[in-house]
């Protein structure tokens, strides 16, 4: 279930990257930050937040345990 949620959220983020609504917008946010650039800066922060949530709630603990067994 967790994997499905992570995949769906990842797909949502992938679609949100294509911000056609700011494609030709030259507005300067706060007087200096072009709208399209500001949007993608926020996108980077949201991506980090997404990965924080993934690492908190969907961490692959089993993979770690399997590796530590080490029968090499």
């Amino acid at each position: 279930m967790k994997t499905v949620v992570v995949l769906v959220l990842f797909l949502v983020l992938t679609f949100l990257h294509q911000d056609d609504w700011y494609w030709n917008d030259k507005t300067l946010w706060f007087g200096f930050l072009p709208a399209g650039l500001g949007y993608h800066a926020i996108y980077s922060v949201v991506a980090a937040l997404f990965w924080y949530l993934v690492s908190k709630f969907a961490w692959p603990h089993k993979t770690e345990e399997w590796a530590e067994q080490g029968d090499a």
Binding site: F10, L13, T14, H17, D19, P34, G36, L37, H40, A41, Y43, S44, A47, A48, F50
Partner: peptide, 14 residues
């Protein structure tokens, strides 16, 4: 222009 950030930086971040 600014699209370079979306092309290379925000895609790479994700």
């Amino acid at each position: 222009g600014i699209g370079v950030y979306g092309l290379m930086a925000s895609w790479s971040g994700l």
